[in-house]
Nucleic acid binder design. Structure first.
Lengths: 259, 259
DNA sequence: GCCGGGCTGTCGATTAGTTGCCTCCTTTAA
DNA sequence: TTAAAGGAGGCAACTAATCGACAGCCCGGC
């Protein structure tokens, strides 16, 4: 059932971060405040090792290679996917072709909704941003697990709450901030998440294309190019190949518009 | 503790719609599709009358007069408010002053989050759109109720899921649709929810100001004025005082952008 | 080496949307 | 009956952002 991995590399899944329960459940998204992504509730945090194994045993493991779709908006769904390793980009494309990225979810989170039990149709699409391993739990299984393991129910509620906060924050950003403000905000978030100090400046190694950034802030590729160029002219940052150097974090803060 | 009601009218709360369990838990919002608001899960649907009473007994009843704040973004919160009667507008104001309305929640829903248990800070503000009665349940109480009444836990999960869908839809609309498309969408939604046939046309009695509409679609008041004027020039609708007559529903469908 | 595809940068035209100001209409109070 | 105040709608100038198109560049494959 698996497609051939690109370049013939197979993701090595030695131990499951879910089982270990130690991996931070990070998410990369355009949030209202960075605090949101620092400590989101791990779905399995409250479970004992035994309970975790039990949950994982109930699910169906699946490998998704980089660039392959995990689920598509409008198609029927049943249950959710736990991300065991890798990174899933969740996005939506409007009939006009305009696209918005909700988040890049890392291991420890779940994707798939919108319902937990009971079938429905996907409202988002999910694609593997890196080679990933997910565990599929059907609605029926979820219902049984909730009844059997009370702390799993609590975990799910906290997970849903966290997702609600993410959606909320996205809607608030999109509804009240200009593209420039959103971009400044995203850059600061990237700085927090991936930034490394390097003689005075902060270097972001992660290579997002302009199109990737545009989808995250809900804008066009061209406008992101123009905005970045302006920031560069102001000496706030410098875009190099596959990395970006931030010189003036304070300036970004000033133009992010949350004051 | 109660402020004097404006105009001296007191809301009469004969029987609780929550207890009756029969009131449709409608929400007025800018959703992806109308289906969302037709059958949202009532928080209490799955409970027996006895369980409902038990839940309500645990909470603290509170009357909120039209225009009074129920909660404010940034302030600490504990638990949620069940809406027993009335209508709560949930909104967010950015530091720049730009405002976005998430939804008008009617009786049968709950507002307040973002956390269910455990304190946090409100990320939205809530104001009574009409004189309303709410029941406050603290996080501690919620936790106890979830443990005691399993179907209450399911109801909460469904409620959270529904909210997630609403937030999702809002983010998708804001991220990928133009203001005009959003406005067309909102008008169609209003037509569905409040429209009354009147010799060929459909009349919406509900009186929203341009500012109200603007907040719902995430735009400025002026732009709504301009857009409505254009629609009027095209003969699609006619704005009268305190009501609006829709002549060409098909045209609105065409410009809503979901095709 | 050459070719092709994806990413960046740029330009010009156009529109969507904002900002600020002004007028009109209610409502309330005197 | 009128004055004052505030909410609501409307106009005009401005700018932020989109759209479409195209050229250059970098990288990988052949």
């Amino acid at each position: 059932m698996l497609n051939a991995p690109p370049h013939g590399q197979l993701p090595v899944v030695a131990t499951s971060p879910l089982l270990a329960g130690a991996a931070p459940a990070q998410a990369l998204l355009l949030t209202e405040n960075a605090a949101l992504t620092n400590g989101p509730p791990l779905l399995f945090q409250r479970l004992t090792a035994k309970e975790r194994e039990e949950v994982l045993r109930e699910g169906q493991k699946r490998v998704v290679y980089r660039g392959k779709m995990l689920f598509s908006q409008g198609t029927p769904h049943d249950g959710i996917f736990l991300i065991e390793s890798g990174r899933i980009r969740v996005f939506y494309i409007a009939p006009s072709g305009r696209e918005i990225t909700l988040a890049y979810w890392n291991s420890g989170n779940f994707v798939g909704g919108p319902e937990l039990f009971g079938q429905g149709h996907h409202v988002w699409s999910g694609v593997a941003a890196t080679n990933s391993v997910v565990v599929h739990l059907t609605g029926k299984t979820l219902r049984r697990l909730i009844a059997q393991i009370p702390s799993f129910a609590i975990g799910l509620i906290e997970g849903l709450t966290f997702k609600g906060k993410c959606y909320s924050a996205l809607a608030q950003m999109l509804g009240t901030r200009s593209v420039t403000e959103r971009l400044a905000h995203l850059l600061l978030h990237l700085t927090d998440a991936y930034g490394v100090r390097e003689d005075g400046a902060i270097v972001i190694g992660s290579a997002f294309t302009h199109a990737d950034l545009a989808h995250m802030v809900g804008a066009t590729r061209q406008w992101v190019t123009i905005s970045l160029k302006r920031l560069q002219e102001q000496g706030i940052l410098k875009a190099e190949k596959a990395r970006m150097v931030i010189y003036d974090v304070a300036a970004l803060h000033a133009m992010r518009g949350d004051r």
